[in-house]
Design a protein around this nucleic acid. Sequence first.
DNA 1: AAATTTCTGTAACTTAGGTTACATAGTGCA
DNA 2: TGCACTATGTAACCTAAGTTACAGAAATTT
Lengths: 254, 254
Amino acid sequence: MSAISSLVDHEQVSTSAQPCQAESVSPNLHLKGLLFKYPTLIENADEACWDMLNQAKLMNVPAGTVLFHEAMECKHLMLIVEGQVRVYKDSSEGREVTLYRVAPGQLCVHNLNNLVNGLAYPIMAQTETDMQGLVIPRPIFHKTLEDSASFRTYVLRTLTERLSHMVDLVSGFAFDRLDLRIACWLNHEFEIGCGKPIKITHSELAQELGTTREMVSRILKEFEHKRCVQLARGKIHLQCRHTLKLASQGKGKK
Amino acid sequence: MSAISSLVDHEQVSTSAQPCQAESVSPNLHLKGLLFKYPTLIENADEACWDMLNQAKLMNVPAGTVLFHEAMECKHLMLIVEGQVRVYKDSSEGREVTLYRVAPGQLCVHNLNNLVNGLAYPIMAQTETDMQGLVIPRPIFHKTLEDSASFRTYVLRTLTERLSHMVDLVSGFAFDRLDLRIACWLNHEFEIGCGKPIKITHSELAQELGTTREMVSRILKEFEHKRCVQLARGKIHLQCRHTLKLASQGKGKK
DNA sequence: AAATTTCTGTAACTTAGGTTACATAGTGCA
DNA sequence: TGCACTATGTAACCTAAGTTACAGAAATTT
């Protein structure tokens, strides 16, 4: 509660109702460039879908902006062109868990939820980087849902995929030890980063996984002793992919 | 793995591919009777939606049937008319968590996921009671998604609602103590049952919440001492709604 | 009625995770 | 160079949750 209001007070907030720096996107060509990260949406897009995209406005949002929170209503759908958004839930004791991230090519399903059901949901979304997005007003979103088969497919896919992802989250919390969850997270990050060092602080990682900084420090240090990783200020270097894989499979419990 | 295959071996399994006892539903009137628990679907149903429903086949499934598991592919969408299905995830150590239940009026979103994305997902669904459902073949489901605005709305609503529910699950695991989670669960059950005793064993409740029987026994006994509930074999009686509410709000920590 | 199975109670113990409370080490910059 | 700030390390302690290992009660079957 206090965490939320302090954020809202002290940081730049753009309610979806008042997009800042919105401008029309003119030619189709330009659109295709902006949306090249949405291949599943674009490649099969039908006319109705293009209609919607042509009516979208481009909007710039600085890093750290709260896009929605608590009981906020969404008046727009946002397609992210550049940058990324973190969607998370915070606890009354000041801890956090990341639920998922929205990157170019993806939709914020809670944004969708809000648009479809008209229900706000007590969760937060905040830009992690400067962001550029295409803003689609609610009525146009609904109309396109009616008219465009391709858009529909895209929306449905996104929703069901997120759902599976949420099941993974639940089962991690329910069954896996924290060291396992950290190892898996590292593994995944190293995989998509091709082994490049991960830039994150221990307390950020704690907020990612819904735990505390001290626990993360403790477990990362263990991993360093096992020579999976090497720690530096604000960075985690991969030392041995194999050892980390083992740790992430729950083996080598020590 | 072994848990799954043993279930599959020893219990009655109906792959969605071979519905047992399927029969055509003839007149519209009959359909309306069957689907009276689907008001949101029925009341606004357009012609395309009725078309689909008219092509559905009625199917009876006995209690304890595994509807899908692991990497099983769904060839049908199932609208539950009578009875209920439990969708859950099991751990390698033999524990379980219930993800959600599907009752008349609802859809199994993982069934949807499978139909939409063609991806199977390692999670289980099993009938808890004898069940009667309307089976809709995959191609007809897809066609109706194209043609029926009302069906689409219904599907989207269901999906986004489940998603919110999953967030609650995650945040419970991430932030709430087990006693809190049990208290909330009891509260909810007493609410929908209007205070009637809940029929459940401790180990079933453990599987519900992803914990162990001993923990549930211990915490329920605590609640009995606090005079929230009264325990009997296979049953939990509500003693004082107020005290339980307090416990479920994390107050009266003892 | 006796035997068997299922359910519950509970004590003793272990372990994972969280908390408190510092110390120390980098980083940026005045 | 020194100061402030942020990030990390770590020990001691606490508590929630899980585990082991029973005993006994209630239901069900033979």
